[in-house]
Every structure is written in structure tokens, then in C-alpha cells.
Design a protein around this nucleic acid. Structure first.
Length: 870
RNA sequence: GGAAGCAUAGCUCAGCUGGUUCAGAGCGUCUGCCUUACAAGCAGAGGGUCCGCGGUUCGAAUCCGUGUGCUUCCA
């Protein structure tokens, strides 16, 4: 078979994905093996694959594939989230393009369009994950608005309502004037903004002309002012006790109140109080029984209550009112001011704090077990630094605003009768039954269902339970087998939205944690450290990357740059590194295949190289296991990369490579194949396609790599590892000497060794000789005349060359090393002659120092001898 | 305003419970090579007051304090 010059991912990836899937490797059914379960954080049904998904899902796939090779019954559940706000916005936009105004549609008509849209475009992202190689159990795909899932959400709503944990009430909420819905605190982002601080004077109601000056960044809210507040200890305003002043332009007479909440240093020390439009002002208003004047309409324009500018947008009014205040003589001055402005995470609109009737879920009780489970590591966080963040939020948890003024989502299962009484039931029939107990003979006609839907996260928090059919049967076989799931992989920005709430839901409804551990990946930034975003256009088109480079290489590039828990700075240069790596493996395959027809029993049987490579793999296996346990996946990949490239390709293959036109011993050939297969297996979780392909090209395989089982850890052969290290050092040192003396690669040398370690040269001498192009290798116990001398560990070597040599270079190098060693010896001696050190340090530390001392002394002696001969 | 995290080679980062196998890796840089798979490669090399200052200790990149700079979260 002819192998192409370079590795060509496009040709093979689709083939393997289909093959694995058809073979059923991705599907899981409960059996006698231990389960390893991951539920995928469901992406928005409107979503398309971006770098964040690529990182997140690659990590999950790596964990899954490794667990599969460790004998676990692996199950990875895919699915999508209905994402109320984002999806509704998309559908509204799509309708607008068709010339349809949402407001002209009934709820049912709108939902019909929304479902059509979802069926057509929703879940594209899941198809894209197939291209990435994700070994998802497609038979278990879920959607948070599936019928069964919908029922589960209804059930938990009703249960919590029955317990009194869900209630309806008027509170200050975050209002999105663009999406026209309430948002939870978590959906509001605070952005630093350049604003203007406007100083305005209010006329005091008194006989003399007197004013009090306030400062505000929102002058348009003046029309809703119902008090001015100052600090009780502020002498500047002490004389105003019990007085009133007038709101400019509309002349509303409002009291001057005193409260310690005021910061005397800020602005003028006098605060205008607008209880309808600011949470702090609202609290002040409650305390002082102030009137509430709501001057804004839901869409952000001014309401009739404002008296002025009715129907005009809040931002337009902000500019306009300043001019009018100037005209009226109330304007004092304006200053630049930087403040934090809340914007909607979804629509980007500036949030209005607004008083509104909403549905709330009380959290305090549910937070307790959820907090404890994380603090005592019953649920482990990686990296653990996120425990702090979690504790802080859970410790100060506020009630959750769960109603959204939208149509796309689970409609709140509450019905009102004409008198305004509320009936909560899992469906209309239940609510009707309750109603009929009050009103015998009442009918559905008398009831009206709540128009609002539930926050998307109110369904998402059930994800790890409901994908295994919790609502239908809370003790079903699947739930018992797969739940709690093993690992949740997500980004830290949804730790409150989702992670914390899943933990709460798990304990509340199932009585068990939803997962054993949570691994938080970093955020992906560009190489300048900026967050990837559509606005900046710095996010690469992932599907294009996969088409251009192949999924393995994209996975490699994402993982190699991804230190555990830290943000990753993505640079497309990593793609090049991945491509080079793929080619390296491909070429190693080609080389090995060339030996297939050259095997001959008469060839030398090279024990040293195969034994050493086996020991290196054994050593690496242990290290990789530790790294995986700590979720240091990037490190594990780097280690595997280096094991394959450096140890296997650069050293091992060169060590076993037969001479030109010479045969290879069949045992060495078979061992080489085995070693190569082991390496491919270690790499498989990271680069599944390439490794499966090469694995099958190596030789006829009894099983596919994806399900090949990793062996139990073997004790590594330390002796061989040390010898391998010595061999490498000898080769490097000799090559360096050759380089420094400008010997051409083709120039041969004669090599003499003064060593007590004859066994080593018997085993590895022929490798050494070939690797440094020495035509002879002889033992000696005396210096060799006219030869270059070098010392490696305690081995003394003499190189003789036919080309002219400059001993000066060698001498300088040896003198430098001698000087370093002497300095080193001094520091060790000092340490050992320090009584306190000898008394306090642990015995093994002291023993180590003595060994260092002895080694250094021996080497100094050797170097000095050699130098004296130059 | 409150809290957390970070600062190590040109860049991105490892360095767990203090002790020269601990001053490292990858990429980049420099030098020499078209050597029986790979120039998308091979063989070598150079490069750091471990942010400043102080302390604990026989010993500090590592622990403590402090200053500076950056990042994030919360209000």
C-alpha cells in the first residue's frame, strides 16, 4: 500500500465517525461495569459552534474517551436549551424580515412559527459537534422544551409553590426595555461607562430664595423624584430639617429627608430620591414612606406620570432635559464621571430597575445543602479557587426572579379567576379542579392562565436528572445507574446561572448531588488577550478551521494552549504545531511500514532500545494518570506529544533503525509496532481520528483503538531509564563537540571510552556509535593523544577525528564547567558543614547532599585530569 | 466601595507539602545540515536580580507582611 506524503485528515475523519457511531461505541446501556457519565451543558438551540464550545466539548470528549479505555461504561448526553430570550429574539427578527409584527400574532401563532424555526435551524450545533469528533450518545438527545421535560418543569414549579418557596410579588427587578421582560440579577452585566454627572439645584420652599444642589447621572429621572436626602450629621444641610423643595420643571413639592445611608463626600452630599427607578432609592422610599412615581413605560419611553416628554426615549430625554434645566436656571454644572451601567446579557440593552409584579423563588433554604456539598468537597471543584466565588454567592443569595414576559418557554402553570385568586397546578385540569372546589360549576372559561413563561435556567437546573427520566420515575434503572453524573465541564461564567442551581435542584428534588466534580475551563481569548466576540470579529470560524485543518488538529490547538482553569490565549499558530505533529506521526508510520518487508532473524536483536522505550511509556502512563486526575489535560497532552516526538521518533526510531539495506529483527519489528500502538492509544483521547487511522494501518487489529483497554500500571524499569538518560547525554555531548569543532555530519570519528561501566557499552555501545557516526568504539584507561576530551556524568570520552581540531573550544567549555562545579561543591560543602543544617534537615535531604558532594568531587577530578592533558 | 486571583526566558505558561535531577516546557530566535520517514524536517546553541522591599528559616521562585502593576467577580 502506498502512503501519501503527508497526513490528510479530510479523507478519513468522516469515515471514522460514521464507523464508530454505527458500531454503537457511543451508545450506553446500564450494565455491570461502572458508569462514567457526563451531561453536556446544553448549548442554545439557536447556537452555532464557536471556540468556547470547541474547548468545552473537546475536554468532555477527552475525559470520555479515556474513561472508555479504562473500562468504564461511558455515557455522554447531548442536547440543547430552548434559551427563551435569545430564541424569541431570533424568531421575532425572522418574522420582522418576513414583514410580520409579533404583536399582530396570537401566542399560539407565534409559537407555531417558533417551533417551525426550531425544527429547521435548532440543533445545527449538535451536527457540528459530530465534526469535532464528540463521542456523544445520540440516542439520548434531549431538548429542554420536550414534552416530558416540560412536565418535569411544571412539577417542580408546583412542588416549590406548594412548599411556599415560590411566590408572586412586587419588587424592584431588572427590566430589559428592548426584550420587554424581567431579568434575573445574573443576567445583568455591569459595564464601565463614561457618563456625565449633572448638578441640579432644587428651590427650597421658603421665604428666601434658597436652593439645594444634587448630583445625578440620570437627570431624566428627576421627574420621578419624591424626596431629596442628606446625611443627618451634615452641617451644610442641618438647617433644612423638616423643609420641602420643588422638583425643577414640574414643581412637585417633595420633602428633604435625613438618612445615614448618604455618603457625605459624594457629589454635593445631597441625593435625589427616585423610588421607582433605583433599587437604593426604593429602599429609602420604603423606609421613609415616600410616594412612588413611575415615569417610564416598559419600552423605555417616558410615561404620563412624568408629565413632560411623554413618549420620548429615556436617552433622548437625558440630553433634552439638561437644556431645559439650563433654561429654567436649575442647571449648575456637568462633570465627566465613570460609573457601572447594567446591560442585558442577551439583548445588550441598558437595564432599567423597575418595580414590577413577578414570580419569585426563595433560595435560602435550598442554598444550604448546596453550599455545604461544595465546601466539604462532596462535589469537587477544579480549580478549587472557584469554591470562594461559589461560597460568596451562595452565602449572599437573593430570591430568584423566575418569570419572563415572553412566549417561548414553559408557561407558568398558574391560573387566575375573575376575582384574582390564583390556582397553581401541573396542568389546566388540575387548576380547574381546584377552582371548582371554590366555585362549584366553574369552568375553564372563568380562568385565565398566567401569560409569563419561566426563566430558561428554571428548566436547565433539572438537566442532569431529567435526561435520565427523573419525572417519569424517580427510581428508574437509568437514573440509578448514571446519576450522580461524574464530571460537569463548563465555563466559570455560568457558575451561578447553572452550576449552583443544578446542585440545589439535585438535592431538593432528587436528594442527591447532580455530579461528583466540576471542571471549569477558562475563557477563550485571542492572542492579545481580548475576549472572543462577534463584535470584535476576533473569533475564528470553527467549522472553517475544521474543514481546513481537520478536527484532530483543531482539538490539538485548543488543548495545547489551555492550562487548567486559566483563560486560553488562542493563536492559530497552534494549528501549525498540530499539523506538524500529525505529520510527524504519519511519517513515523511510513518509516515503520518500510521495515515490514525487511525483517530477518539474522539481524541484531536490539534489546536496549525496546526495553528503554517500554520503560519510558510505563513512566509516562503514571504521569498522565496523575495529570488526568488533576484535570491538567493540557499538560497531559504536552507530555504525550513529547513522548511521541522526542522519545519515540527522535530517539527510539533512530536507535532501532537498521543500517542502509540491512534487515531488522522480526522481534524488534513486532515490539516497535506494539510500542507505537501504545503511544497511539495514549494520544487517542486528544486526537481520535488520526490515531484510529494509523492504528489500523500499522497492522491487522483485533479491535478498534477507541475501545482498546489501557493496561494496568506497570512498574517502570528505573535502571534502564537511567541508562537511557546516560546514552542520550553521551550522544548529545558528542554531537555538540562535533558541531563546535565544525565536523561535517559525514566525517567519522574514533571514540574511546574510559569507564567502569562496561555493561552499559555492551548493551548500548552500538547505538552510541551509530548516533554519533563513530567508526570505532574502544575502551581505554589512559588518555588518547591528540584527541578531543569530554566528560559526561563520570564517563571520560576521547574523540579522534581526521579533520583538524581546535582544542581551545573544548578547553574553554571544560574550564567553564569545572568552575561551575567547584562553585557548586563549595555551596554543598558549606551546607554540610553547617551544624544547624545537619541537625534540622531530614535524613534523606542530607543523604542527597552527600551524594551531590561525592558526584561533584568525582566529576571535578575527572575534568581536572582531562584538562591537564590538553 | 467589597472580595478573589495573577506577576517566572522575547511570547504563552509549568513549577504540589521550602532543600541544584529546581530555575523548566512549548513556541519564537541563532548556528550547522536536502543524513536510509518527515525541510511541515534533523542536529545543536543561546536566553531569566523567578515584579520591588522587608521578614521567617541553616536554606525562599516556593511561606508571611508590604508596595506596585494587571485581571476577574460582586455592589
Amino acid at each position: 500500500m502506498e502512503l501519501s506524503k503527508n497526513y490528510e485528515p479530510q479523507a478519513i475523519e468522516q469515515k471514522w465517525y460514521t464507523y464508530w457511531n454505527d458500531k454503537g461505541y457511543f451508545h450506553s446501556e446500564p450494565d455491570e461495569r461502572p458508569a462514567y457519565t457526563i451531561v453536556m451543558p446544553p448549548p442554545n438551540v439557536t447556537g452555532v459552534l464557536h471556540m468556547g464550545h470547541a474547548l468545552n466539548n473537546t475536554v468532555q470528549d477527552i475525559l470520555l474517551r479515556r474513561a472508555r479505555m479504562q473500562g468504564f461504561n461511558t455515557c455522554w448526553v447531548p442536547g440543547t436549551d430552548h434559551a427563551s430570550i435569545a430564541t424569541e429574539a431570533k424568531v421575532v427578527g425572522m418574522l420582522r424580515e418576513k414583514g410580520i409584527d409579533k404583536n399582530t400574532l396570537s401566542r399560539d401563532e407565534f409559537l407555531k412559527y417558533a417551533w417551525e424555526w426550531k425544527e429547521k435551524y435548532g440543533g445545527i450545533i449538535l451536527q457540528q459537534l459530530k465534526k469535532l469528533g464528540c463521542s456523544l450518545d445520540w440516542e439520548r438527545t434531549h431538548f429542554t422544551m420536550d414534552d416530558a421535560y416540560y412536565k418535569a418543569v411544571m412539577r417542580v414549579f408546583v412542588e416549590l409553590h406548594r412548599k411556599g418557596n415560590i411566590y408572586r410579588g412586587v419588587k424592584m427587578i431588572n427590566w430589559d426595555p428592548q426584550a420587554l421582560t424581567a431579568l434575573s440579577d445574573e443576567e445583568v452585566l455591569h459595564k464601565e461607562t463614561q457618563s456625565k454627572l449633572t448638578y441640579v439645584q432644587y428651590r427650597i420652599d421658603s421665604d428666601i430664595e434658597e436652593y439645594i444642589t444634587i448630583a445625578t447621572v440620570r437627570p431624566e429621572t428627576i421627574l420621578g423624584d419624591t424626596a431629596v436626602c442628606v446625611h443627618p450629621d451634615d452641617e451644610r444641610y442641618a438647617h433644612l430639617k423638616g423643609k420641602f423643595c420643588f422638583v425643577p420643571l414640574i414643581n412637585r413639592r417633595i420633602p428633604i429627608i435625613f438618612d445615614e445611608y448618604i455618603d457625605k463626600e459624594f457629589g454635593t452630599g445631597a441625593l435625589k430620591v427616585t423610588p421607582a427607578h433605583d433599587i437604593n432609592d426604593y429602599n429609602l422610599g420604603q423606609k421613609h414612606q415616600l410616594e412612588i412615581v413611575d415615569t417610564l413605560n416598559p419600552n423605555g419611553t417616558l410615561s404620563e406620570a412624568a408629565q413632560l416628554y411623554i413618549g420620548e426615549d429615556r436617552f433622548a430625554v437625558r440630553k433634552k432635559i439638561v437644556e431645559d434645566l439650563k433654561a429654567s436656571g436649575n442647571f449648575v454644572k456637568q462633570e465627566d464621571y465613570t460609573n457601572q451601567v447594567g446591560v442585558s446579557e442577551r439583548s445588550g440593552a441598558v437595564i432599567e430597575p423597575r418595580l414590577s409584579m413577578q414570580w419569585w423563588c426563595s433560595m435560602e433554604e435550598m442554598a444550604k445543602p448546596a453550599l455545604e456539598a461544595v465546601m466539604n468537597d462532596d462535589i469537587r471543584f477544579f480549580p478549587s479557587k472557584f469554591k470562594n466565588l461559589y461560597r460568596h454567592w451562595m452565602g449572599n443569595i437573593k430570591d430568584w426572579c423566575i418569570s419572563r414576559q415572553l412566549w417561548w418557554g414553559q408557561r407558568i402553570p398558574a391560573w387566575y379567576d375573575k376575582a384574582g385568586n390564583i390556582y397553581v397546578g401541573e396542568n389546566a385540569a388540575e387548576a380547574l379542579a381546584q377552582f371548582q372546589q371554590q366555585q362549584p360549576g366553574g369552568s375553564m372559561e372563568d380562568l385565565r392562565q398566567e401569560a409569563d413563561v419561566l426563566d430558561t435556567w428554571f428548566s436547565a437546573w433539572l438537566w442532569p436528572m431529567e435526561v435520565f427520566g427523573w419525572n417519569e420515575d424517580g427510581n428508574n434503572k437509568e437514573l440509578a445507574y448514571y446519576y450522580p453524573t461524574n464530571t460537569l465541564v463548563t465555563a466559570p461564567d455560568i457558575i451561578f446561572f447553572w452550576v449552583a442551581r443544578m446542585v440545589m435542584a439535585g438535592f431538593e428534588f432528587k436528594g442527591k448531588k447532580p455530579f461528583n466534580q466540576v471542571y471549569f475551563t477558562g475563557l477563550i481569548r485571542d492572542k492579545q488577550g481580548r475576549k472572543m466576540s462577534k463584535q470584535l470579529g476576533n473569533s475564528p470560524d470553527l467549522l472553517q478551521l475544521i474543514d481546513d485543518h481537520g478536527a484532530d488538529i483543531v482539538r490539538f490547538s485548543v488543548m495545547i494552549s489551555s492550562p487548567a482553569g486559566n483563560d486560553i490565549l488562542y493563536d492559530e499558530a497552534f494549528l501549525e504545531q498540530g499539523r506538524n505533529f500529525s505529520n510527524k506521526i504519519w511519517n513515523a508510520l511510513k518509516l515503520v511500514k518500510m521495515w515490514e518487508s525487511r525483517t530477518d532473524e539474522a539481524a541484531t536483536l536490539n534489546h536496549f532500545a525496546t526495553g528503554w522505550m517500554q520503560a519510558r511509556i510505563d513512566e509516562a502512563r503514571q504521569q498522565i494518570e496523575t495529570l488526568f486526575v488533576d484535570f491538567k489535560l493540557s499538560e497531559a497532552l504536552k507530555l504525550t506529544y513529547s513522548l511521541i516526538w522526542d522519545d519515540f521518533c527522535s530517539w527510539y526510531l533512530e536507535w532501532v533503525k537498521p543500517g542502509m539495506n540491512e534487515p531488522m529483527h522480526p522481534t524488534v519489528y513486532q515490539q516497535t509496532l506494539s510500542l507505537f500502538e501504545d503511544l497511539l492509544q495514549l494520544l487517542h483521547p486528544f486526537m481520535p481520528f488520526l490515531t484510529e487511522e494509523v492504528f489500523h494501518l500499522l497492522r491487522e487489529q483485533p479491535a478498534d483503538l477507541i475501545v482498546r483497554q489501557l493496561p494496568a500500571a506497570a512498574a517502570r524499569n528505573e535502571q534502564v531509564l537511567l541508562q537511557g538518560r546516560l546514552l542520550q547525554e553521551l550522544i548529545t555531548a558528542i554531537r555538540d563537540t562535533r558541531n563546535k569543532n565544525q565536523l561535517k555530519p559525514k566525517d567519522t570519528i574514533s571514540l574511546f571510552v574510559d569507564s567502569a561501566n562496561t555493561m552499559f557499552y555492551t548493551a548500548a555501545g552500538n547505538i552510541l556509535q551509530r548516533q554519533v557516526n563513530a567508526d570505532t568504539l574502544e575502551a581505554t584507561n589512559a588518555p588518547v593523544n591528540g584527541a578531543m576530551t569530554l566528560v559526561v556524568q563520570t564517563e571520560k570520552l576521547y574523540l579522534q577525528s581526521h579533520a583538524a581540531v581546535d582544542t581551545g573550544v573544548q578547553k574553554t567549555k571544560m574550564e567553564e564547567e569545572l568552575q561551575y562545579l567547584k562553585g557548586f561543591l563549595v555551596s554543598v560543602d558549606k551546607k554540610l558543614s553547617n551544624e544547624k543544617f545537619v541537625q534540622n534537615a531530614k535524613p534523606d535531604v542530607i543523604a542527597n547532599e552527600r551524594k551531590k558532594q561525592a558526584d561533584a568531587e568525582a566529576k571535578i577530578k575527572t575534568l581536572e585530569e582531562s584538562l591537564s592533558l590538553l
